[in-house]
Design a protein around this nucleic acid. Structure first.
Lengths: 214, 214
DNA sequence: AATTCTATTGAGCAGATGATCTTTAAAAGC
DNA sequence: GCTTTTAAAGATCATCTGCTCAATAGAATT
């Protein structure tokens, strides 16, 4: 109506208006910002607001993604891909290393990934939305991480109550909940998350009478 | 344009069109359906779709709620109010009963409440949206349930590592994660959730060397 | 410096969405 | 049975939203 609609603001970088990026670079820029943006406001965040944050026009987004769903797919891909390192199954089952050490190493690395603000929130948003990626990720996690972990526990367990898959999920859930509290419920971060993880692991091992040095 | 916009469908109840309800009753009907609806699709669910499910016109909703936010507030109120029974703090600290029994009783009742599909999802949606109700609920939970629980644990603990608030959160989180897996991530429900809760509690007590009969 | 190529903008459309207001008709009072 | 009251429907508005497309201008090539 007024001819002033959707004028892009200055680009944050260097405070100068930077136009005409190479397509691959611009595409990456859009996806990166979209990850932050959707993590903050949810997948129903509006493309005009995203464009404003990018300092470009809204129509530019549709030059790189045919539909908003396609952009969301790119966000999913960026966030989900490479999250589960393929060498963990091997390291978790390396019996030359004490189980406690293996667990500490795994959850030290893994928590650094999943306690990330963007991952945690997009994972939750996509879970609520019923995205199949979410369920597939958890199935995969169960198959390549938790099930092997159960097998390791079974080998070492000394108690008469045999370990069950649910016990591994309980260990995992108790740790994941640290991130949920922080990033979804916005509660303060524990002073030393790594210590809490270690205690959760020790609680788990003790329950099955597993010696820490084993 | 065509004069056919937004004609309400038949009301599900008795298959008959039921019109002109007493205001209090209609209001309750709207809130009840809104709870289900928003739990399913999120708080950005559209009022027209809600009206369709109710079998009424969209404008009727705004006859009972000035704005959509006001409706959402009513949903929050309905879902949050009375969730934390006021007599739990007392029962959790009743030392004439063994701690394991107290914990089992509490989490048996509490999990029945929080493992509810609607609660779990609306709690998560409102948490992601940053609703203050969410943080206030968790603060309250920490104050009246978890902190007293820590005190009880401290009294009975036999180990040299003193229990910390984070340990109680870990117990709680591991249990809450059962519901999250089921209702947010849509994974299958554990066969016997009560058994898993019992195991989580035993794990917790064992870690602090607390005798189950104590 | 002129030309070409194409990343980006500017303008706008069609349908959706929260909200308003007038009209209709179900039920209570007489 | 007629009147009054008001719950609910019907119509519509202003704005928002995903998306399209022609016009513009930045940069590489010649």
């Amino acid at each position: 109506m007024d001819g002033l609609t959707e004028r892009p603001a200055r680009n944050g970088e260097h405070g100068a208006t930077r136009r005409r990026l190479p397509p691959a670079e611009r595409r990456k820029q859009i996806v990166d910002e979209a990850v932050r943006f959707f993590a903050e406001v949810g997948l129903e965040g509006k493309t005009r607001e995203l464009a404003r944050r990018l300092g470009v026009t809204q129509s530019l987004i549709f030059n790189y993604f045919a539909t908003k769903d396609e952009l969301i797919d790119a966000v999913y891909e960026k966030v989900y891909i490479g999250r589960l390192s393929p060498d963990w199954p091997e390291r978790l089952t390396d019996r030359s290393v004490p189980i406690r050490e293996r667990l500490l190493a795994f959850y030290s690395e893994y928590s650094a990934l999943i306690f990330e603000w963007e991952w945690m929130r997009i994972f939750m948003f996509s879970g609520l939305a019923g995205a199949s990626l979410n369920q597939r990720y958890l199935e995969h996690l169960g198959d390549v991480i938790l099930r092997p972990l159960l097998a390791e526990t079974e080998v070492l367990a000394h108690t008469d109550t045999p370990p069950k898959m649910e016990d591994v999920w309980n260990l995992h859930g108790g740790i994941a909940y640290i991130g949920i509290r922080q990033h979804i419920y916005r509660m303060p971060e524990p002073v030393k998350p790594q210590d809490e993880i270690a205690r959760a692991i020790d609680k788990y091992l003790l329950f099955f009478g597993i010696d820490k040095e084993q």
